[in-house]
Amino acid sequence: MWNNEILINTARFLVLILLQVVLLDHINFLGYVNPYLYIYFILLYPLTGNKSLLILLSFLLGLSVDMFNNSGGIHAGASVFIAWIRPLVLKYSFGVSYEYNTVKINTASFSQQLVFIVSMVFIHHLILFSLEIFNTSQILFILKSTLFSGIFTTIIIFCTLYLFGKRSL
């Protein structure tokens, strides 16, 4: 069981990076809106898994996407942040019981899923676009990009969750 989990997470890590840089970074819906599905890895990381390992893996995940995009460290920074804040968001969306392995993200109620995913996605995107644009005079543009990309990412994450979530992928 434990080995199986490592295998699934490794495969998810690699597949999500490839999917992100080959396909999703080139959608450019309405000219500039792209979904950032790769954070699906951070969302679905085992709830009882090692937290330090998740922070480290998120950094590597973000840095790989940055390498393909020539974007410095914007994805790495945003990913590390949501990996660190994940326990807090979990507690506040699923209640304290998540720590005793009674909840699973793919079987929780829709409203709990929605709160969790939307919070994580928007925190990630806000940091991502703030780091990318890096200019306080363009704060409206940052918020606009966060909103549009955030909605897109949330929809894609829900689709992925319902398509593959049952098989715990």
């Binding site: 922070i55 480290l56 950094f59 973000g62 840095l63 940055d66 974007s71 410095g72 460290g73 914007i74 790495a76 920074g77 590390v80 942040f81 660190w84 780091l131 890096f134």
Partner: peptide
């Protein structure tokens, strides 16, 4: 790690 990311950015 966050500091490293900001530095890289």
């Amino acid at each position: 790690l966050f500091l490293i990311s900001v530095f890289l950015t």
